[in-house]
Computed example of a mutant assay.
Amino acid sequence: MSCCKPYISCIVLLVLLMPILYKFIIWIITDPSNIKFYVTHASFTQFNLTTNNTLYYNLKVNITVRSPNKHTIVHYKEIKAKAWYKDNGFGKVNLTPFDQGHNNTTFPKVVFEGHNVIRLKPKQLGEYKEETSARVYDDLAVGLDLTITTKIVGIDSTNWKPMYVRCLPLRVPLISKGRTTHPFNVSKCTNFFK
């Protein structure tokens, strides 16, 4: 019987470690942190700051979301998009939840439209005026707050911590009469868990 003690100890240890090992393997397979986000196009059709600091805006943003996971479906349960100009938040919108299949690319579009009061510092106000004359605005950012789950072989994972995606700096042209004088450059985003 004493010769079996090491084997019994190993079996008990293995049984205790199996749930941890299982979760680790599932996490490696379904890890959503390798999803890539890009802003492929952005443009304004309106971006006017009035003398009472009210910003009227219409910003269209095309995003590409690339999931290289070969065995995982990613379910975006909640998507909140936010826009900033020179560190001043000016727009928020909720996007429709969606599922992203195995090894898939999805192309969500975001439209920020409305008006909001923002407070630009004197230097920023001077930059805004220069950018208005050039018809291209610098120092913009778009962020996505995401709540996601993953599914592998039909089994839902637990809810992941909320993911945050930050796309900056963006240089966004103003489209007037259907034309723009500046092209938009694709911007890679950074994602991390909060």
Rank of each mutant, 00 (worst) to 15 (best):
residue 6 P to C: 03
residue 7 Y to S: 04
residue 8 I to D: 00
residue 9 S to E: 10
residue 13 L to Q: 03
residue 15 V to I: 11
residue 15 V to T: 09
residue 16 L to A: 02
residue 17 L to W: 10
residue 18 M to C: 10
residue 19 P to M: 05
residue 21 L to R: 01
residue 24 F to N: 03
residue 27 W to D: 00
residue 29 I to T: 04
residue 31 D to A: 01
residue 31 D to L: 00
residue 33 S to L: 07
residue 33 S to W: 08
residue 33 S to Q: 02
residue 38 Y to I: 00
residue 43 S to C: 12
residue 45 T to M: 08
residue 45 T to P: 05
residue 45 T to I: 11
residue 55 L to R: 04
residue 56 Y to T: 06
residue 59 L to C: 07
residue 62 N to A: 13
residue 62 N to D: 13
residue 67 S to A: 06
residue 67 S to T: 05
residue 67 S to M: 06
residue 68 P to S: 03
residue 73 I to A: 04
residue 77 K to P: 00
residue 81 A to E: 01
residue 84 W to V: 03
residue 84 W to F: 14
residue 86 K to R: 14
residue 86 K to C: 07
residue 87 D to C: 08
residue 89 G to T: 11
residue 98 F to M: 03
residue 100 Q to A: 08
residue 100 Q to S: 07
residue 106 T to P: 04
residue 107 F to Q: 09
residue 108 P to K: 05
residue 108 P to A: 05
residue 109 K to H: 11
residue 114 G to F: 12
residue 116 N to E: 12
residue 117 V to L: 09
residue 118 I to M: 04
residue 118 I to G: 04
residue 120 L to E: 05
residue 123 K to E: 10
residue 124 Q to H: 10
residue 130 E to Y: 14
residue 132 T to H: 13
residue 133 S to R: 14
residue 134 A to Y: 14
residue 134 A to H: 14
residue 140 L to F: 14
residue 140 L to D: 01
residue 147 T to G: 08
residue 148 I to M: 03
residue 149 T to G: 03
residue 151 K to Q: 08
residue 156 D to E: 02
residue 156 D to L: 01
residue 157 S to M: 01
residue 157 S to A: 02
residue 159 N to R: 06
residue 159 N to I: 03
residue 162 P to R: 10
residue 163 M to P: 01
residue 165 V to M: 07
residue 166 R to G: 09
residue 168 L to D: 14
residue 169 P to N: 04
residue 174 L to A: 08
residue 176 S to V: 15
residue 177 K to A: 14
residue 178 G to Y: 15
residue 180 T to G: 13
residue 183 P to Q: 12
residue 185 N to S: 13
residue 186 V to G: 03
residue 187 S to H: 15
residue 187 S to C: 15
residue 191 N to H: 12
residue 194 K to E: 10
residue 194 K to N: 10
